[in-house]
Design a protein around this nucleic acid. Structure first.
Lengths: 337, 337
DNA sequence: CCAGTGGTTTGCATCGTTGTAGGATGACCC
DNA sequence: GGGTCATCCTACAACGATGCAAACCACTGG
């Protein structure tokens, strides 16, 4: 069927190894020979067989990316950035969706499928500290998006806790006192939910505001519908509040929608603040004040970090943790004061 | 390093071929032998080497998916559905972003990278009829999302034209007469833009409404910001209009945002109708009336179609075109009357 | 007791590439 | 003219799996 090195070699009148040398830019090839070979390659439309190359060389130039769901805008935008960053390094990306499910995350780490890749970037949701051992894998691995415990691999993470504290303080400094949060999820041991909640509580404590758990609404998934549902629940509880901190933009936008349906004005009656700085946060009505967690930096750094480890000597590097800078993007839903 | 068939075989005391037979569920293996082998596999943590398997068997159990950008919610949601559908069939998915760029789309079709996959699902934007030949490729290919010309491969497409006509008629029947459209793009020869515009014009013609090109606003990319920009342009033109048909939801949402900033009420002053039925369309304020193009069906059908062609005999199947059903989802931004 | 049968296991070639080591060629110098 | 040394090219052996065909092993029946 498809042409192989040998076919090209026969046509060019050289040994098939010389063709291989041409393809791999081996320096000692006479220009005349190189040209002859290149003509033959063009004529036959020869393309190297990647499986054979991988088998022989051990490199696949492919990485795997595991995210909960592409349906979640945050992960979709992140995946897009990672795929682009990988491509710049000559890597293609294989995308897996774990649904944030611990079993599937663990299964993925042991999947034979990974032998088709040079390494994995995973954004885990379900795994907890008890799974530390599972991360001791024989291939390059970068953990993404969580400030975790002392795990034996590279992390590229955001300042969840600091950012949540800063966001809460921002709301407080703009005069809000009864700040609800949406997105709490104690099941997710290591996840952002816990860390963001902690940041929120720290800010309250620092500012001498009492923590009221009636203002905390759970949301295990962070779709827009979950934000809407959570806000309805909050309204039903009948607690007073003058601000809502959504643990991500999607939740915040869903919640904002319900607030407005209920006749509450944003930001006059209730300020709303999100987390992620999604594309759409700038275009909601009102536009959403949010935390930019440095997503682009995260994506690029994750790929760079993985790439270093894939290269030779990579296995010897000590585990590294890299933290993105965040900033609060002020928009209409929660003005500075 | 990693264990191979031979290591397992030595430990189990059988030939390495027997181990292969166990792994591939070859029927004639004595239960006792099978168990012995399985124990050895477990003990060594053996995982088959996918590159070697692919090289030998010619199958990779991997498909490639090419979309313009994951940053566009429509394609992110579509990609998520396709990856899930592929996984159900035991396939993993490699994702490429073309940026809707013709050169990159064409380059992809010739990429040696594809020899790592069993087939490609591509959602082209930049390619036109002049590229028909480029689609005559030696591997399974499914074209997605456009009603194209007579191309020599499978299409799975939506009824762009019919749906746009129905959407426009919907607006007309609700009493609107000056219907603006956002998203026109004549550069994209074969794309949805052209087809949706055609459907729009047909509806106008049928209903005896004159086509006014001042109501047509261009948008080459379909991000939210483009919708916003287009709406600003429309407002500056000073033409009257009582409805806006965005060629996708993202455009419509961006436009709606600008409308409201300008003090126009949706739907009282201007009705807004989108296309795609994104998750977020249900949660905007007001919620967005839109066309559901049958995305889930599209994703599943694309994978099924590719899968059939990957299987043996697939090359002999004639090119097929499959059309998804659409429906109009009535929401607040454009009530039925 | 041996040929025939069917289940079970094995040996060998092979997929298309790259790595290693060494052979051929010609230029250059003493 | 022979030795040395780049430069260029080639031969051969892997990489780890699967497909094919043949070998092996009970059994059975004549």
């Amino acid at each position: 069927m498809a042409a192989t090195l040998r076919d090209v070699a026969k046509l060019a009148g050289v040994s098939f190894k010389t063709v291989s040398n041409v393809i791999n830019d081996y320096p000692h090839v006479r220009p005349a020979t190189r040209e002859k070979v290149e003509r033959a390659i063009a004529e036959l439309g020869y393309k190297p067989n990647m499986s054979a190359r991988s088998l022989r060389s051990g490199r696949t130039d492919t990485i795997a990316l595991a995210v909960p769901e592409l349906n979640l805008s945050y992960f979709a935008e992140l995946a897009g950035l990672i795929i682009a960053a990988a491509e710049e390094k000559g890597l293609v990306t294989l995308v897996e969706q774990t649904g944030g499910d611990r079993e599937r995350e663990l299964a993925l780490l042991h999947s034979p499928r990974l032998s088709m890749t040079d390494g994995l970037i995973i954004s885990p949701l379900g795994m907890g500290q008890q799974d530390t051992e599972a991360l001791d894998v024989p291939f390059p691995l970068v953990l993404l998006g969580e400030r975790t415990f002392d795990w034996p691999c590279d992390h590229v993470t955001m300042r969840n806790e600091d950012a949540a504290r800063a966001a809460t303080e921002y709301l407080i400094s703009s005069g809000r006192r009864r700040i609800a949060v949406i997105g709490e999820n104690e099941a997710e041991i290591m996840g952002s939910a816990r860390l963001r909640l902690r940041g929120y509580r720290e800010a309250l404590a620092t500012q001498g505001i009492e923590y009221d758990e009636r203002l905390v609404v759970r949301a295990t998934l962070w779709h827009r519908a979950d934000g809407a549902r959570a806000m309805r629940e909050l309204l039903e509880r009948g607690v007073e509040f003058d601000a809502v901190f959504g643990f991500n933009d999607t939740l915040a936008l869903g919640a904002m929608r319900v607030l407005q349906e209920a006749g509450l004005r944003v930001p006059e009656d209730v300020a709303v603040l999100g987390f992620d700085d999604l594309d759409e946060a700038a275009y909601s009505i009102p536009s959403l004040t949010t935390v930019d967690p440095g997503r682009e930096w995260l994506a690029r750094t994750a790929v760079d970090t993985l790439f270093e480890r894939i290269g030779r000597g990579g296995a010897e590097l000590p585990p590294r943790t890299k933290l993105a800078d965040f900033r609060i993007i002020e928009r209409e839903s929660a003005p500075r004061d």
